[in-house]
Design a protein around this nucleic acid. Structure first.
Lengths: 309, 309
DNA sequence: TTGCGCGCTAAAGGTAACCTTTACCAAATG
DNA sequence: CATTTGGTAAAGGTTACCTTTAGCGCGCAA
């Protein structure tokens, strides 16, 4: 008895039957439909017999394959259990370096759910977390601005303030609403093109005659938002960072959401050592993409021209 | 649930555990031990954990792997059943073109056993057999003489005659034994360098003064051997073609077997479309190599200098 | 101890398997 | 009839894989 050859062909075949179309199988296998067809064809050529009847509506194993089908499916089911077992056992560390504000206000709150689902994955974000920093490149790097990587989502800047402030200015003349109230700034907004600040906002929407660059400066967004919640003033903040605060009403945006500035750059994700990413990291990346596209949808729906406010 | 990756690594791992050494696993997989090590290492790197403890005397799965081992073995056992089923079901035709004499007197008698073991494999040898000739190159081509391919065995020419003839000349002077008795020739021996004939034999061993090129000429060896059995005369014949006749005593070789001429060329096997040979053809080739090396051994033992006759 | 054999490993390099891309076709669907 | 959906064909690039070669460490015998 000689060892099994054409493992990938058998896998493609099994997946095609399981999924019903080559296209779906391709999706599961992470390759193109053409490749799935090629894999199966290769095995058919090798054996000199057809194995799969390709119909437009569904696939069907030929009589040849029928007799082997049970073993085929049993085999790959067992192997999938193997991978699951091996992955599950593995305690994995994921090291991330990211924009501090984004990490603190977007990533960390969402991460809780992932960590509960994967208790065997430990994190180190910007040098702290479950495990200490190790030497070398981080597994993941999230940056804002021009640079390499894959875009996650594009943020949207708009003014936010505390709920009391909103009530206080509710009956003021819109043109004057913000006059006299303190503007809060982030350090990152100081003279950096990529981070829209009050200067850009007033340029675009008017509403304040002077001093858009004056006010209180905060080192990071968490502190600034703390101040906002206590009605210290107005902050021009990336929407993604305050989605939850807006939801709970801890802070509010006093103007229509259409009065916003789209971030000139998206958040970018760089994956270190792109080929050969460990399965746990793959899981995390997949989750991150999901979360990012959720956020993207939320931002888009909130700032869509036809649904202001 | 994402599809299983590193199939080949898992296969190597399973085989290594099954066989006990990387070397043995490599043999089963048809690759080098280094490759097996690499496959397993690749998976270990991917998972970030060791899977196999390599010891000088035997391999051992690590604790990580222990839990997945049952599924791993079950998986590949099932897949091996798949290949067996698929191969078995397949009715395959093997088309062979070969030296006519060799095909008729060496291959065909031996083929019977193979055909019984593999009733689903049909043959077409030199245009006739179970199935009619098809267009295109034959799967296998057996040639004699210089040419491409893989050597099967090198034949050995020596005189044969019928048992009665042997008795008749037994008490003659060896130098004169063959004088006056007819020499039988094959058409292929006529002026072809590659096929040693009586001329070459007498050049080398004397024993006849004149006319080594005279006698009866036969179109093919089967007819000539028929005549030999009926004591018509002496034939200089490839040993491989008459091994069975010598065994049964239907024909004999009147001189010590050391009085032979080694064929200047071996029989050569060319495999068409070398990569992508169908499994049935692989089985047949493996069998053919076995048979050929059997024959080689028989020829060598019969013609060895220390065991003449 | 030294020398040797055996099995695993490391590094380098070549090749073929594999995948993607692009374009096309045929059936199903509106 | 136009469009969409799913499969196929051909071409081309790259990467995974394998072989080769050399080396290491251990066990065993002299």
């Amino acid at each position: 008895m000689t060892a099994t050859t054409h493992l990938k062909s058998l896998q493609a075949l099994e997946m095609a039957i399981r999924e019903g179309t080559l296209k779906a199988a391709a999706g599961r296998l992470g390759i193109t439909p053409a490749a799935v067809g090629q894999r199966i064809r290769a095995l058919e050529d090798y054996l000199g017999t057809d194995l799969l009847l390709r119909g437009r509506s569904g696939l069907q194993p030929t009589a040849e394959l029928e007799h082997a089908l049970a073993d085929l499916q049993a085999g790959f089911t067992a192997l999938e259990r193997v991978t699951e077992t091996l992955d599950f056992q593995r305690v994995s560390e994921i090291h991330i370096v990211a924009e501090p504000d984004w990490a603190e206000l977007w990533l960390t709150p969402r991460l809780q759910a992932f960590r509960e689902a994967h208790p065997n994955i430990l994190f180190c974000i910007n040098g702290s977390g479950d495990v200490p920093l190790r030497l070398g490149e981080p597994d993941l790097r999230i940056t804002y601005g021009e640079g390499p990587g894959e875009p996650l989502f594009r943020d949207c800047y708009l003014p936010v303030t505390g709920p009391d402030n909103l009530r206080r200015i509710a009956d003021w003349d819109p043109v004057l609403q913000m006059e006299g109230l303190p503007l809060l700034h982030l350090k990152s907004q100081r003279g950096q093109e990529d981070y829209p600040g009050w200067v850009q906002w007033f340029d675009k929407f008017g509403h304040r005659q002077e001093g858009p660059d004056r006010g209180v400066h905060y080192k990071n967004a968490r502190i600034a938002l703390e101040a906002v919640r206590q009605d210290v003033g107005f902050l021009l903040c990336g929407l993604s960072l305050v989605l939850n605060d807006l939801e709970t009403g801890a802070i509010v945006h006093p103007y229509p959401a259409s009065w916003h500035i789209v971030a000139p750059s998206p958040y970018m994700m760089q994956i270190h050592n792109k080929s050969g990413v460990r399965p746990q990291i793959q899981k995390f990346i997949a989750w991150l993409r999901d979360m990012a596209s959720d956020t993207k949808r939320q931002i888009e729906s909130m700032t869509a021209p036809d649904t202001p406010g």
